[in-house]
Design a protein around this nucleic acid. Structure first.
Length: 884
RNA sequence: GCCUGGGUGGCGGAAUAGGUAGACGCAAGGGACUUAAAAUCCCUUGGGGCGCGUCCCCGUGCGGGUUCGAUUCCCGCCCCAGGCACCA
């Protein structure tokens, strides 16, 4: 027995210390050391190399809000494991990081601190960069970018001009969603239930001249690819995008107005019910409303109604219990199919933004129309009969919206309604009464923002020439960084005369003025992944060769909150670049992982409201408010948020535990796509495990020094060495498949924990034939498998075990099939499906003998008794089920 | 209302070709080491029952079904989370 084992752990430690291994695991020293090593050796600098297979791993870049939060830590830890794993698997990995640096919080903070958005932003970037570096993420920092720098946004302006040239951008006066608090316009996507997505203020409509991107031109393409070409995306996200695009296939139908030379056009998805249309409803904003009311004696009433509806705020109008209200305009139109005379109403449930703003109402087969008809006593005509039933308008309590057979529909009677849809669409087209039509919920992307801290829109307003694009050679239009914000957070751009006044690019007139709107910050984040491929390139948006090599992103990782906005815009932008001939692909992100939220229970004091974790004191079993001593109400697990104060600051965690422990906890506590519940005890557990790994290496270091990790055939081993060798390879297999197939790092970590437990329990293995080599293999494997997860500790132990740095560039271990084989297998025996016994049988035993062994087993016989055996089911190497 | 997920011990979570439910960790309990504590190491731990066993019964939200066998597949419900919502 080696000297060290006889003498116990104390001797081990002194040996270890003599050779330079610290007795205790000290994360801080180790982490600083290896972060420096990585940086000095430019270990994660990515270079194009066509001879190697590339892997582009991207995490959603952060907004530089001040300091990183747990959501960042989790997101970037997941990404880092994949990046490091892929590197070890031999891929040429691109793993960049940067800053989504424009946006309103910078302006708000500047006002609050009497500072400047630029100052605030750059300071935050510096601080957060340090934080990310101290997490040990394997970013190629040489590619870092910040979207608020002119070198970045000049290419965004350049693209804007290209799009303008191609008619992909336009300007129009329109009702926009206006947030008074933010003093700006919001895209439809940024309005949540009638409230501003950022500050929760009620959004109101305002008429403004706005710039729009024609994203709706791509609605069908975006939709089609959602189904066919995004298999690497979570179904949930694809579904959300599909719903958002909201394609409806139907028909346009023209309804002539009685005694007037006016036609009302409607869009419907149920042209099969056209014979049942008994009245017409127009949106209150519909231009025909005042016109139709004219001369009917109802003008004043109609005007009052429209005004009142306009004041109904959007939030209430969308509420479920909202009362349907309408007004008869005094006019009639004619149903072109049935010839029926239909009264024309205006009503609050018709939306001007969708379809044509007019609805043919079929109260028998549409629930909204049904409710409206009941309220105003309008006619009901059944035109679809359900199979085996006969609806009677007099007794109907709700609309029938399912399939059936047409009645009261002239030549279409007796036809199935699905067929009737086509037949009626044909007839409409043939007779010029309308035709097939497709509508989308998705509307064009309004990108104008009346804010300062954003990319200036490169346009000029000339009194003579109108709106004129800035000349390409005059880019970038630099945002003046010395401007001070106006009271109320208003943009200073419209009053900055020096900046504002510019000669007209077209006629040269001196008093032209710049566009003062800036772009929605979602524009910057719609192409940053392409810019990362060649971030310093100054001849265009990106270097073609670099983009051809790196793009598309192989794996994108971020929060599900961007499922619609950012991801849809990015897909749209990539199509624009594609159609401009700049990229060869349409989808930017091949695979997408949306990680769950980081949650923690809330704590609330009856007096002081929500409490931060450090405002809660533990008194025995109870928790009390640190300020007033009142018992704390512990709420349910919720997403960490400043407003609920249930937050944990990664900065403090880093100080207390170091990066590896925090990383390990984030990965081990739950699989990435699910929510992560914060647990202090869990972090302690992670710390304990890493200490255990450290001590394991310290303990066995002497045993394995000079021993070459065993890589020979399994059958030259026996006893404990053979068992350990099997466990090593089984662990390699499990960890590899867990990471490779489904990013289940939690089970990967469990597997390594099992291996570590086994090594602890394998005392004496070093005395076996090849025992020291197998032990060396086991220790080395633990370190290699942990390398992507806890990189600093792994680097340190890799070196301690006598290897040259860096483990980050070491090849990922391979498992040997022959090592996994066992001489005997455990076969479970069931009687009628219930577990009754277990048998250890030779791995190569034939089925018949296993069956006989099972039937002979005393436990089995007890349950079989003298009942006749009907059937015996054998699953080789696993199970025997005796059916009696 | 519609569309996604999800419901498994005291807790986080395992079990992805239908085949030993509860891996791994946390918490709890017991033991070893220590003058003592911390740390560490080892053991126990779904519920119930008794003859304490290689024992029996129950058990993966609820109710049915398919199957030799169901956490896994099918049908019908309940609950939780997220998304969409008067979109014609």
């Amino acid at each position: 027995m080696p000297f060290a084992v006889l003498c116990g752990t104390r001797e081990h430690f002194s040996n270890a210390r003599r050779a330079g291994m610290n007795e205790h695991y000290e994360p801080k020293a180790i982490e600083a050391r290896w972060q420096k090593y990585w940086e000095e050796n430019r270990l994660f600098t990515a270079r194009e190399d066509p001879s190697r297979e590339k892997y582009y791993l991207l995490e959603m870049f952060p907004y530089p809000s001040g300091k990183i939060h747990m959501g960042h830590v989790r997101n970037y830890t997941i990404g880092d494991v994949v990046a490091r794993y892929k590197t070890m698997r031999g891929f040429n990995v691109l793993h960049p990081m940067g800053w989504d640096a424009f946006g309103m919080p910078a302006e708000n903070a500047a006002i609050a601190n009497n500072s400047h958005p630029a100052r605030w932003t750059y300071d935050n970037i510096d601080y957060m960069r340090d934080q990310l570096k101290s997490m040990g993420f394997s970013y190629d920092w040489e590619r870092e970018l910040a979207t608020c720098r002119p070198e970045y946004y000049r290419w965004e302006q350049w693209l804007f001009l290209k799009m303008y040239e191609k008619g992909m951008v336009y300007r129009k006066k329109s009702d926009v969603n206006w947030c008074d608090a933010c003093q700006t316009v919001l895209a439809n996507e940024q309005v949540e239930a009638g409230l501003c997505w950022r500050c929760g203020t009620e959004v109101r409509l305002k008429k403004l001249e706005q710039w729009f991107f024609r994203i709706s031109d791509y609605a069908d393409d975006l939709l089609e690819y959602s189904d066919r070409l995004l298999p690497g995306w979570p179904e949930k996200v694809v579904t959300m995008q599909k719903n958002w695009i909201g394609k409806s296939v139907g028909a346009r139908i023209l309804f002539p107005v009685e005694n007037r030379d006016i036609t009302i056009e409607v869009f419907t998805t149920r042209q099969d019910t056209v014979y049942g249309a008994t009245f017409m409803v127009l949106a209150p904003e519909h231009p025909l409303v005042p016109e139709l009311a004219r001369g009917t004696g109802r003008e004043a009433e109609a005007a009052r109604f429209v005004e009142r509806m306009a004041k109904q705020d959007k939030a209430r109008r969308m509420a479920e219990d909202f009362e349907k209200e309408g007004l008869f305009l005094g006019a009639y139109c004619t149903n072109p199919m049935s010839g029926r005379r239909m009264p024309v109403y205006t009503a609050n449930f018709a939306l001007m933004e969708y379809g044509t703003g007019a609805v043919m109402s079929v109260p028998t087969h549409d629930q909204r129309d049904f409710e409206f008809a009941k309220k105003y006593g309008l006619d009901l005509v059944v035109v679809i009969q359900p199979p085996g039933e006969s609806l009677d308008p007099a007794t109907m309590t709700e609309a029938y919206t399912d399939d059936g057979v047409l009645v009261n529909s002239g030549p279409f009677d007796g036809m199935g309604n699905r067929d009737a849809m086509e037949a009626i669409a044909d007839k409409l087209e043939a007779e010029g009464l309308g035709g097939r039509s497709v509508q989308y919920r998705l509307r064009d992307w309004g990108i104008s923002r009346q804010r300062y801290w954003g990319t200036p829109i490169p346009m000029v307003h000339c009194p003579d020439c109108g709106v004129v694009p800035v000349r390409e050679e005059d880019l970038p239009v630099v945002l003046p960084e010395d401007a001070d914000l106006l009271p109320g957070g208003k943009s200073p751009l419209p009053v900055l005369e020096d900046w504002l006044k510019v000669p007209c690019p077209s006629c040269g007139r001196e008093d032209a003025r710049r566009e003062t709107d800036t772009m929605d910050t979602f524009v910057e984040s719609s192409w940053y992944f392409e810019r990362y491929c060649s971030p310093r390139y100054d001849q265009g948006m990106f270097d073609q060769k670099a983009v051809d090599y790196w793009m598309p992103v192989d794996q994108y990782i971020g929060g599900v909150e961007h499922a619609i906005l950012h991801l849809l815009y990015s897909r749209y932008f990539t199509r624009v670049l594609h159609d401009l001939g700049m990229v060869k692909f349409k989808e930017p992100f091949t695979r997408l992982l949306t990680q769950g939220m980081v949650c923690k229970e809330t704590t609330k004091c009856p007096e002081h409201g929500f409490l931060f974790p450090d405002e809660v004191q533990v008194k025995g079993e109870d928790r009390v408010c640190a300020r007033c001593g009142a018992p704390v109400v512990v709420g349910r697990m919720e997403k960490m948020s400043k407003s609920k104060k249930n937050v944990v600051d990664p900065g403090n965690l880093l100080k207390e535990y170091g990066a590896d422990i925090v990383r390990l906890f984030c990965l081990f506590a739950s699989p990435p796509e699910r929510d992560l519940e914060w647990s202090e005890a869990g972090v302690e557990g992670a710390a304990r495990f890493l200490n255990r790994v450290w001590r394991m290496v310290a303990k066995h270091r002497e045993d394995v020094s000079g021993a070459k990790p065993y890589d020979g055939p399994a059958d030259e081993l026996s006893g404990a060495a053979r068992d350990l060798f099997r466990k090593v390879h089984d662990t390699i297999r499990r960890v590899t498949t867990d990471i490779e197939d489904r990013f289940h790092f939690n089970t990967a970590v469990s597997a390594v924990m099992e291996l570590v437990n086994e090594i602890y329990g394998s005392g004496g293995v070093e005395n076996e034939e090849h025992g020291r080599e197998v032990l060396a293999k086991a220790l080395q494997t633990v370190v290699l498998l942990l390398a992507p997860i806890v990189p600093h500790l792994s680097e340190e132990l890799w070196e301690v075990l006598g290897n040259e740095p860096s483990v980050a560039k070491a090849p990922w271990p391979q498992w040997r099939e022959d090592a996994l084989a066992t001489s005997t297998v455990l076969v479970v025996v069931q009687v009628n499906g219930k577990l009754r016994s277990r048998l250890n049988v030779a791995a190569d035993a034939d089925q018949e003998s296993v069956k006989q062994m099972a039937l002979a087993d005393p436990q089995v016989r007890k349950f079989v008794g003298d009942k006749p055996v009907k059937k015996v089911i054998c699953v080789p190497g696993k199970l025997v089920n005796v059916v009696v």
